[in-house]
Design a binder for these strands. Structure first.
Lengths: 246, 246
DNA sequence: TATGTTGGTTGACTTGGGTCAACGGCTGTG
DNA sequence: CACAGCCGTTGACCCAAGTCAACCAACATA
């Protein structure tokens, strides 16, 4: 199990080969030799303050971003102002893949806390993918994983009841915190009830009530954004046996 | 505007350069010179009978598929039997991208009618992407487009009301039939009310009622699977001004 | 330390869509 | 070409989640 993400020191070399997020990020599974060639891929780093946009829908697409520290949400907006959060992203995850198809971004990426990303110029990535054996495959896997993840969210939105959705969300967060060396059972959410609700296709009041219900039933303990999973198996059971679901 | 898809003749050469679906399919935007090199990419064709699987969740991933004739649905199943249709695919569209990430498929692909696909071995695609300039970019665009499409479905499932969802679905079908040289306003759906419902996160009765309502209001005329859009602008308006939406 | 603001909780009430059931019309298979 | 099973429609009723509103807790700003 690895330690938590270190504080970024300005001027630190932005080398993938030196980064402790390698196992979670684009370079996963690449050989040491390939990894060292990858160091030139990250042209620069960029800090994004809480609530600020990394990019907006309509922005021309130049680069994808690997999250080095912090976290983000992505959302799409309808003309009438309705918002749909399409995902929450954590360290090591890749942002901006939506931009490739039309050469302009189709969603907004907003930092949930002060964050930092590695900027990966897309034309350089294309070029290096031709040269480095493992990079192309790895990049394809990252995109494919995003598609699979999206299908999971559709399952959630299309066929699950409110409490099942929240249970699935909490277990997913737990699993991702675990992969980053944090506690599987205790963590601080970075997003508001409203953002969770938007992601899960629920109103914030419904999210709040589901949290309270889980607490009453001894499945979790919550205080504001701090969540403690007391009975993860119970949460899993909740999802599997549909309690008279739609 | 191009003619409709011709009947496939057995023994016809499976060359991309000879295929009238080029503009809708993986080779879109590639030069003639590149296109001719692509002909070796499609190793074989495969016919899939109505209701039969092209692949199943768990199958090991070997190839992606370009739809040459017919149409498909993809779905994911939960342990308790709940099904979520994640998409409907038409000629020229690519199936199987979900398999890249884990090297095994994560969803089922089922033919909605007797269909035929071009089999594109994934290792060959990887290799040729290294060599042919435009192929890599085009493949990335196909994957990215899938991600953008999925975000649209999330918007639909997470923030729209039943009638808005069906209106969006019908307009999307219309647009895709149009791109294939068919009428924008009149077409035959290949899927059942239950499959539409699963895709839209609704029960089949709700889908049926929404169809009837649209007909009463003069927006469409329906008879079984045959749909005639009488007022596409009206359907668009329905989506934009949320009629007191969630 | 006061104070406005945002985020979260809870209650009372409403409603869109789910559930259950009956029925009729295609359709494709023997 | 008959008929069984699937598919689609419609009605009556119900309930999970939305809406509206009040209020409290945390936190940022002065």
């Amino acid at each position: 199990m690895r330690a938590s993400v270190p504080i970024t020191v300005d001027g630190l070399k932005s080398a993938c080969s030196q980064c402790n997020l390698v196992e979670l990020c684009l370079p996963f599974g690449m050989s040491d030799r390939e990894l060292s060639r990858l160091d030139e891929l990250v042209g620069s780093r960029r800090k994004v303050k809480r609530q600020h946009n990394l990019y907006r829908a309509g922005d021309s697409f130049e680069a994808i971003y690997a999250i080095r520290a912090g976290s983000f949400k992505t959302d799409v907006l309808l003309e009438d102002g309705r918002e749909q959060v399409t995902g929450f992203q954590m360290t090591g995850e890749i942002l901006g893949l939506d931009g490739i198809s039309t050469e302009s971004h189709s969603c907004n990426a907003v930092a949930l806390e002060d964050s930092e990303v590695c900027v990966i110029a897309y034309d350089k990535l294309e070029q290096m993918s031709h040269e480095i054996e493992g990079l192309q495959l790895q990049f394809h896997k990252v995109m494919s994983r995003e598609i699979v993840r999206d299908h999971g969210v559709m399952m959630l939105l299309g066929s699950m009841r409110a409490e099942e959705r929240l249970a699935a969300f909490l277990l997913n967060m737990s699993q991702r915190f675990t992969a980053r060396g944090f506690s599987p059972s205790e963590f601080n959410l970075r997003m508001t009830r409203e953002e969770i609700g938007s992601y899960l296709g629920l109103k914030l009041e419904t999210v709040s009530r589901a949290f309270s219900r889980f607490q009453e039933e001894g499945l979790i303990s919550v205080q504001q954004k701090h969540v403690h999973l007391l009975d993860p198996a119970g949460l899993k059971r909740l999802i599997q046996h549909q309690h008279g679901a739609r």
